[in-house]
Design a binder for these strands. Sequence first.
DNA 1: ACCTGAACACCGTTCAAGT
DNA 2: ACCTGAACACCGTTCAAGT
Lengths: 230, 230
Amino acid sequence: MTVRREPMSRRERPAKPALSRPGIVDTAVRIMRAEGLDKVTMRRLAQELDTGPASLYVYVSNTAELHAAVLDALLGEVDLAAEGGEENWREQLMAVLTSYTMVLFQHPQLARSALVARPSGENYLRLLNRILDLLSRSGAAVEQVAWGVDKLLQTATATAAEHSARKGDPAAQEDWDALTGVLHSVDENTHPAVRAHMPALIGGAGERLRWGFEVLINGITSTPVPRGDS
Amino acid sequence: MTVRREPMSRRERPAKPALSRPGIVDTAVRIMRAEGLDKVTMRRLAQELDTGPASLYVYVSNTAELHAAVLDALLGEVDLAAEGGEENWREQLMAVLTSYTMVLFQHPQLARSALVARPSGENYLRLLNRILDLLSRSGAAVEQVAWGVDKLLQTATATAAEHSARKGDPAAQEDWDALTGVLHSVDENTHPAVRAHMPALIGGAGERLRWGFEVLINGITSTPVPRGDS
DNA sequence: ACCTGAACACCGTTCAAGT
DNA sequence: ACCTGAACACCGTTCAAGT
């Protein structure tokens, strides 16, 4: 009788699996997809893994590092192959950047943390390598390409982070509304330039991303790095 | 005797001043300067003002809005006058952008929050107006100027936010070290482009900011907005 | 209208102790 | 080496009650 009880309870609580870094990161990703990044806390994660928060510190040194690991996992979704002929580096570059941005758009809170805690994972490295390769086909100097890639990734990340204002967050739509409201009713005499640029200042949501990348690519390939730097 | 007691105790606790939004924001700024933005919490602020956290919600609707108010207060320090002759819009623009970036560099955590919660305060508006005015002297189309200013402010803000990795934060230096470490020891066969751009990928801290602005200005003034957009 | 005490529902991280 | 319970030192926000 006691013989039977043992397997039963195993089936009910399906053999709590041993902790491991991959397992922890997987669970973190699952929580994020289901409920957003701010639910990915040490305590919540521990609960999900049927243990105490202290146990996680064997595999992860703090919350920031955990979020970085989640980001790198997500970066696996970026499409590096991208359509467009081998010779058309510009279109390919645009496609990869767009793919990266779209992945981050899905989780703007991650983009936010990516700006601060520089990622250095496997998937990030692959992405970096790919973009460097594409941009270097422009024929620009090595320094321009190196610094330029940084700028491209920065815009993409920052744009996605800003996006958390529109989506996700509850009170963040209000910020946007507040800004557009203020811009619409700005005083002609004190802020003439704002007035003069007014419809454009707010509009063009969709085209802005692509235009932003084009601006950067044009600027990067035509602006030499100050001499004497490596 | 009781007559004397009253003024005494007034002198010891110097007449708790009435709460007000400006007073709250001032205190918040003071705490930030002294101990950093993450000490600027509702609870801590209430303690400083000798009241309970609930009382603050009469003047401030949440923590994000509080931080936005602190940011706008700080933006008052940006030097909009900037040296350089009236005719040299490029140098003036560069000076204003640099001043803005420097102010944010002092408080990178604020820059971080500025990316998400779009500011719309008085000082932000002044800055926006000034940069629009300067950039419009390039002769570029209105749409390019409007979208371009957004890009310029975005880079400045994002660069400052990234800066929180190097300064301030304790474990964030580690991220940077981790990244440079990984980049230095990357495999030639799997990531040839990273290898090829290696010294430049990491170096050039100081010149990068100016180069970044130049790239944008060049790109903005030479890249037309897709037609049909305002 | 403004202010408050108290509560609800959480956090990250550490550390001594166990296995 | 890995895991845990318990504690320390905090959070934001709400709400009924008071002035």
